[in-house]
Nucleic acid binder design. Structure first.
Lengths: 342, 342
DNA sequence: ATGAAAGCGCTAACAT
DNA sequence: ATGTTAGCGCTTTCAT
């Protein structure tokens, strides 16, 4: 049956049921202030029996405190942000703060809208992916007067605090490792990058490292949408047909790298003898592949953790805690697809 | 710099800046009631210039309306719930309702806690995974007096509405297809099931179908945690060493199935000639595998969509719209790993 | 088309 | 240890 009849219960209902003032009931339910054990018992019993659930809307308005942390990220569909979320949740778990997620789909306009919605709930802090935001978004974040942590990236100017890795450095380091290993004919496969600033920065650092070794990217290919694993296959096939003498492919994420790896193994191509491969992110999925893809850990869990810690510190100590800019140092894990020397 | 100084702006600030009453400002910002074009202009300009973001806390308290829909699911780490979320988001997108997610990690106590938190925000509706909940959770959902849609599963009694598939039927159908294809020595690999009711129901339907064909499960193995792809590999190896004459393995999800498939292909074992395989869910990832795993689509997107539609209908039309019980019919996709006859 | 008053359900601050 | 009062920032309702 579809019956949603009863008026939601209020403090007053509990107050009447237990014969105690609303104020005392409120105190019991929040473990605030002194209440005698007897009264506490009585109140708790009444509340539970009635099935009372406090109204946080009213509580928040009265106390001017909302125990929510807005987390604004581009997507949940890949392996990267779920792990950031895990870091955030774990850290917030034993505080009274709660993460609330908004998704932008890598669209600045949507980011703006999601941010607006989020801020209209007056959260205690905001964790937001990336350093690139519209002017309006930056203005809102400034005006909100709450701690803001921009995560994932440190190549740029933060609004308040930031925690992440330098994607330019990440791309450069991988480029250097590839050059040092003696690869010469190197391709780059990735997402279409106009809106993925971090992938773009990795690409920039990468080409820069190659340039230092006197090497230019031999081929490149970009995709958007679809199954990343399948796209990795397709694109690998495409570039190899177009540029058969490639000896290395750098993928902008592990999923397409895994697709490429499966494709090459299936074709019986010697990896990393004939062709070396590397991805980015260090996703758990790679553990199950026939061969371990070279990758670079993006410190996703730690980033989430650190960001949450900053929010926590600032929302407790008030204005006493300074903003922070934390750069993590991602490590290359060579796996089995990047030979270490000639 | 870490400066969070300014008091958040209020309607009053906009009112003063534009020389119009708070009431009129409110009307402009909500497109409600008649306001002259001139006034509207003036107000909008002031609001934008100040960077005013409305306070939904106050608005919700005053209007007794919260445009939030609570979505309570066990996990985001697998491929199943993100797609349900997509279905929900897409449907809610052009309404004024917004999904807010809570994660239970398959733990009843956590579900209870998350639900309590959620309901304390007085959402317009709740979408919650599964039909099994603690007494307290059921009581809260009843008392909330809002539309509730239980999703994923229809094997049980809903609190209000439900949308899903019958996992018992799903398991049975797959069992029947496997028996019909002439497989005899059949193993089941999956998660430890005490808390995953849907996996358990599939297993029950499955064994029942085998029994009808006079077959008993030849071996079984369960896991928890870790990389599903890697676990799929390990478990496949384990059961094959223990029971070498297996000719079919039914996996409780596609990820471990994919791991098993990769393992077998690597070993050069003939799939589906020597061993057939099937998974469950119909995840996109399978598109990128060397061979298409047999699976069964769980209608995840559609379930999310339908659930959101029900909430939408009920929160608009009030009590006029009846509860619904909707059963989707999942289809087997045989892929390349389940031969269709002897 | 605009404004004034009342109050949503709670909590801070001040009694007692 | 418990109660009373006065809002929190909006929207509803009723004037004008």
């Amino acid at each position: 049956m579809n019956d949603h009849p009863k008026r939601p219960l209020t403090l007053r209902d509990v107050s009447e049921a237990s014969g105690v003032s609303e104020m005392t009931v409120s105190r019991v339910l929040r473990n605030k202030g002194d209440v005698s054990a007897a009264t506490r018992e009585k109140v708790l019993r009444s509340a539970k029996q009635l099935g009372y659930v406090p109204n946080k809307i009213a509580g928040a308005l009265a106390s001017q405190r909302v125990n929510l942390v807005g987390v604004i990220i581009p997507s949940m569909a890949n392996m990267v942000f779920p792990e950031v979320m895990t870091g955030i949740s774990r850290t917030l778990e034993d505080s009274d703060l709660q993460p609330v997620v908004g998704i932008t789909d890598y669209l600045p306009e949507k980011e703006e809208k999601v941010l607006y919605e989020m801020l209209s709930w007056r959260p205690s802090g905001v964790i937001i992916a990336g350093l690139e935001h519209s002017d309006a978004s930056r203005a809102m974040l400034h005006a909100a007067g709450i701690p803001v942590v921009e995560i994932m990236d440190v190549d740029g100017q933060p609004i308040d605090s930031m925690v992440g890795i330098s994607h330019r450095t990440a791309g450069r380091k991988m480029g250097e490792a590839i050059v040092a290993a003696g690869y010469k004919r190197i391709a780059f496969l990735g997402t279409k990058m106009p809106l993925d600033h971090r992938a773009r920065k990795r690409f920039e650092g990468f080409t820069q490292a190659l340039a230092k070794g006197g090497i230019e990217v031999a081929d490149q290919e970009f995709y958007s949408g679809g199954s990343a694993l399948a796209k990795g296959r397709e694109m690998t096939q495409t570039v190899l047909e177009r540029t058969p003498d490639l000896d290395f492919i750098y993928y902008s994420n592990d999923m397409i790298g895994a697709g490429g790896l499966l494709y090459l193994l299936e074709k019986g191509i010697d990896v990393p003898g004939k062709i070396g491969l590397a991805g980015f992110n260090g996703v758990e999925l790679l553990q199950g592949l026939p061969m371990k893809l070279a990758t670079m850990d993006a410190c996703r869990f730690e980033i989430g953790q650190k960001a949450a810690e900053i929010i926590l510190a600032q929302s407790c100590e008030g204005g006493l805690v300074a903003s922070q800019a934390i750069e993590m140092a991602p490590m290359i894990s060579p796996g089995d697809t990047l030979r270490s020397h000639l």
